[in-house]
């Protein structure tokens, strides 16, 4: 069975979930540090902290999805690292999702659908 479409879908889900949480948390952080004195000790609300903790674990799931896809596509190390880091930069994961879909779509059919054609004994 070909694993690339599944891996690509898993990556798309994680890129969007992680990306939305990160974007929301970043905007909140910017607003909080500028206007609500979040720099002071204990000045942050609990929900804010929980959101960042959630991003941390979602990012971990993103890492698994991204590394799985990078391995399947035989990405070189630097390209892989760029893909992994995209989950830590606000809005970068949306772009990464776009690029990955464009890349997979550009591959010849053989690369993504090869197993159907390559069953030898039938």
């Amino acid at each position: 069975m070909n694993k690339i479409p599944t891996a690509l879908l898993a990556f798309r889900i994680m890129a969007w979930v992680t990306g939305v949480v990160l974007a929301f948390a970043s905007v909140w952080a910017l607003y909080g540090y500028l206007f609500l004195n979040y720099g002071a000790e204990g000045g942050k609300p609990l929900l804010y902290s929980i959101l960042w903790i959630a991003h941390g674990w979602l990012y971990f799931a993103y890492l698994i999805a991204a590394i799985n896809l990078a391995f399947l596509l035989r990405f070189p190390i630097l390209k892989t690292l760029a893909l992994l880091l995209a989950g830590t930069i606000p809005f970068a994961s949306f772009y990464a999702d776009f690029v990955m879909h464009r890349y997979v779509a550009s591959l010849p059919d053989k690369a993504t659908k090869k197993t159907v054609k390559q069953v030898p004994n039938q």
């Binding site: 204990g42 942050k44 609990l46 902290s49 929980i50 960042w52 903790i53 941390g56 674990w57 971990f60």
Partner: peptide, 12 residues
């Protein structure tokens, strides 16, 4: 108040 964020980042 427990500093949850720092604690979880350490584990992470």
């Amino acid at each position: 108040a427990f500093p949850l964020q720092n604690f979880f980042y350490a584990i992470q």
